[in-house]
């Protein structure tokens, strides 16, 4: 199977310059790979660095050392060393990040938020709209909300808009941080289905799930971050 992510000797230490230069080591010598069609679930207690690792894979946090090779358009590219426009291109076409929080933009409707990534990939506005509407419906977001800006939505509604945006056209690699945190059982099941579908269609998945039931439904493999923490 195609390796989509290859993590090589990644270490992360935060240095807080304005708090006496205190150094917070998170982990050291992280090595693993994820193939297409796999779902790797990160395990370890709260504070072990699971979210930090996920953000490093996305190119959001910068590791203190090490390499992360992302298979992008058939080539392995080290996202740590890549220039900003390459990182953005990797994110646009290959690497998706699903967080539990929606970054609300004033005046932008839920439908536009969901349509945006498929438009950026070059789909026609009509097709993109149809796909976005289908995804919002699948996540049970009431139709009367579709053309409103989500600033006033509940936490769970905002979260579903965010998930719809991420799964409207799943990326070859999906990084998922607690997608079901404030969802009811019905919508939680939809999210589990969406993740399973993306994986069966060949996506490589790395995720953090606190809900034990969700975790066991999604995972094909586990990685305990605590093992890397001891070394740091």
């Amino acid at each position: 199977m195609t390796t989509m992510i290859h993590v090589e000797n990644v270490a992360k230490t935060f240095t807080l310059h304005n708090q006496g230069g205190v150094r917070l080591p998170v982990f050291d010598a992280v090595n693993f790979s994820v193939a297409a069609g796999e779902a790797l679930v990160l395990a370890g207690a709260s504070g072990a660095g699971k979210s930090s690792l996920l953000r490093i894979l996305y190119g959001n946090y910068r590791p203190t050392s090490g390499h992360i090779h992302i298979t992008h358009a058939g080539r392995a590219i080290d996202i740590v060393a890549a220039v900003p426009r390459t990182v953005l291109d990797i994110r646009r076409r290959t690497l998706g990040f699903v967080s539990q929080f929606l970054r609300v933009i004033p005046r932008v409707s839920a439908l536009d938020i969901v349509r945006d990534p498929v438009l950026a990939r070059g789909m026609s506005p009509e097709q993109a709209t149809a796909r976005a509407q289908a995804m919002l419906a699948r996540l049970n977001l009431p139709e009367r909300l579709w053309n409103l800006a989500p600033a006033t939505f509940s936490g769970g509604e905002q979260q579903r808009v965010n998930i719809a945006r991420s799964f409207v056209d799943p990326s070859p690699i999906m990084l998922i941080d607690e997608p079901t945190a404030s969802l009811d059982a019905t919508n939680r099941d939809v999210v589990v289905e969406l993740i399973a579908e993306a994986r069966q269609n060949g996506a490589a998945i790395v995720g953090i799930f606190h809900d034990e039931a969700v975790r066991s439904q999604v995972a094909t493999r586990y990685l305990d971050i605590t093992d890397f923490r001891k070394a740091a």
Binding site: R85, T86, R92, F97, D116, A120
Partner: peptide, 11 residues
């Protein structure tokens, strides 16, 4: 995570 504003072929 954020809305990207570059055109698809920037790279």
């Amino acid at each position: 995570m954020t809305v990207h504003v570059s055109p698809p072929d920037a790279a």
